[in-house]
Amino acid sequence: MKSQKMTLLSLIIVSYFLFLSTQPDLPRFWPPALITSGGQNAEVQMVAILAKRINLEHQLNKMATAQDLTNFKSILLVLGASLKGLGAAGLDTNKEMDRVKGLIEAAQQKNIPILCLHLGGEERRGAQSDEFIKAFLPAARMAIVVKAGNKDGLFSKICQEKGILLIEIEKITDALEPLKRAFNI
């Protein structure tokens, strides 16, 4: 009876380590995280809710610039352009590109890692969104992307070329797990 229990316990331990070994090694990110968008999309708010749900210390700043990077140790950059969002923020594509470019340059100087997310699926693709994706995804260490937004393989191609870890998820809430693991929560 005792040996049976031992066997079962050993099996559980071995399975756990096997499970861990199948999980990709994630780049590390540290709190507090600055959450901002590349394109003033609505998904940036959703990422703030996800961060809240996993108790990740964070601050949402839709208009963050290089000057705001004082106390942050990571950036969660939510990609995708929204005409409505840009209009509400009083920005055009060029101004928004400049803002994010400045932020990323400052992050790179300070060695602050960037995690890109694209949660809007197919609806958040198109010429304008792709401009932001192509410009800023290469700066990321890791990307979490709703699969429907990567049907044409744009994210896969950039991530493969630049050696960025790409995690595809089915739906928005599936981002919780990889976020937890990336921040070691």
Binding site: A42, Q45, I49, K52, R53, G120, E123
Partner: peptide, 29 residues
């Protein structure tokens, strides 16, 4: 679901995270 996602910002701002028009604060899938 698509419309819920498009209008997420407004719903969150005016109806709040706990509204029936969001699922645990996020859009319905």
């Amino acid at each position: 679901s698509d419309i819920n996602k498009e209008e997420y910002d407004k719903i969150l701002t005016n109806a709040g995270e706990k509204t029936v028009y969001l699922k645990d604060g996020l859009p319905y899938e």
